[in-house]
C-alpha cells in the first residue's frame, strides 16, 4: 500500500537534514509501529507523507498503491485515502467541528452530503468515543484538552474513512480510560475496514497491546535502525534506545 524508497528529507530553505535514507514498506491491512527517541524525525516522517510545506523530499520516492505521490498537493494525498492524526492537532478559530467535517466529507467524496447519514455517523462516533455532543459545535480543537484533541482526530477518522492512517503519538496525553476508548475505536475501525493500514508512532508499548502490530521499527538518527515484532517494543521499553544500539553493533563484545 505504502512504500518509502530511500527517502531523504530536509527542512526547506535550510541545510538541516532530518531523514536520511529511510525505506519502509507497509502492506494492505498491516499494522506497523515506529518507536524512537525524541527528535529523531518521527513526526517529520509522518508530515512528509502528508506533504507538509516546511519539509522537502530531496531524494527517494513515496509510492502509494504503486504510484508516486511525492508531487501531490496535501489535499490530493488525503483524497488518496491518507490520514495523519497529528501529534499536536491545529486549532482553527471560528470554524466549528461540524462545518469542518461536512466540508471535508464533501470534498473527499466529491458529492453532496447525505445529512441524515452524516448526523447518524457523528452521533455514533461521539457515543463510542464518550465525547459530549457539544464538541461538534465547538471550534476545531479550540480550548480542547490534550485528550479531547486526540479523540477529535479519531472522530475525523471515523467520519472521513481513510485507508492509510498515521497515528503520531495518539496515546500521549490520554488517561488510562481514554486510551482504552481510543484504542477500542481504532480496533473496531480496522475490523470494519480490513484493507486499512496503520502506522503507529509511539513511545510506549501499551497502545500496541491493544492494537497488535505486525511490525515494530526502531527509528534513530533519521532512519529505521531495527525491525522486529512486539517483543522489540517491550525490550526497548525495558532497556532504552542505547541498549538497542548496542545490541545492534557491539553485541559480541559484551
Amino acid at each position: 500500500m505504502l512504500e518509502l524508497k530511500n527517502i531523504y528529507v530536509k527542512v526547506k530553505d535550510t541545510d538541516k537534514e532530518i531523514i536520511k535514507n529511510l525505506s519502509l514498506k507497509i502492506g494492505k491491512g498491516e499494522v506497523h509501529a515506529i518507536m524512537g527517541p525524541n527528535g529523531t524525525g518521527k513526526s517529520t516522517l509522518s508530515k512528509t507523507l502528508m506533504g507538509y510545506y516546511k519539509y522537502e523530499l530531496t531524494k527517494g520516492d513515496i509510492l502509494f498503491n504503486g504510484k508516486s505521490i511525492k508531487n501531490l498537493e496535501v489535499d490530493e494525498r488525503a483524497k488518496c485515502g491518507i490520514f495523519l492524526a497529528m501529534q499536536d492537532p491545529t486549532v482553527i478559530n471560528g470554524v466549528t467541528n461540524s462545518e469542518f467535517l461536512k466540508t471535508a466529507k464533501r470534498e473527499l467524496t466529491n458529492e453532496p452530503l447525505d445529512y441524515f447519514d452524516f448526523i447518524k455517523s457523528i452521533e455514533k462516533s461521539l457515543d463510542s468515543l464518550n465525547f459530549d455532543y457539544s464538541m461538534i459545535h465547538r471550534h476545531v480543537n479550540k480550548n480542547f484538552s490534550g485528550g479531547e484533541k486526540k479523540k477529535n482526530e479519531i472522530l475525523q477518522i471515523q467520519i472521513l474513512k481513510p485507508k492509510f492512517i498515521i497515528l503520531d503519538e495518539i496515546d500521549s496525553g490520554l488517561d488510562v480510560d481514554s486510551l482504552k476508548i481510543v484504542c477500542k475505536n481504532i480496533s473496531s475501525y480496522l475490523k470494519e475496514n480490513k484493507d486499512t493500514s496503520i502506522l503507529i508512532i509511539t513511545h510506549y508499548p501499551r497502545i500496541l497491546e491493544y492494537i497488535k502490530p505486525d511490525y515494530v521499527h526502531i527509528m534513530n538518527n533519521g532512519k529505521i535502525e531495527k525491525t522486529g515484532d512486539i517483543t522489540l517494543a517491550l525490550e526497548t521499553e525495558k532497556s532504552g534506545y542505547n541498549s538497542i544500539n548496542k545490541m545492534n553493533g557491539k553485541e559480541k563484545n559484551e
Binding site: 510545506y53 488525503a78 492537532p89 482553527i92
Partner: peptide, 10 residues
C-alpha cells in the same frame, strides 16, 4: 495544512 490534510482543497 490541517484543512488540506483532511481533503479540503486550498
Amino acid at each position: 495544512f490541517y484543512l488540506m490534510s483532511r481533503g479540503i482543497s486550498k
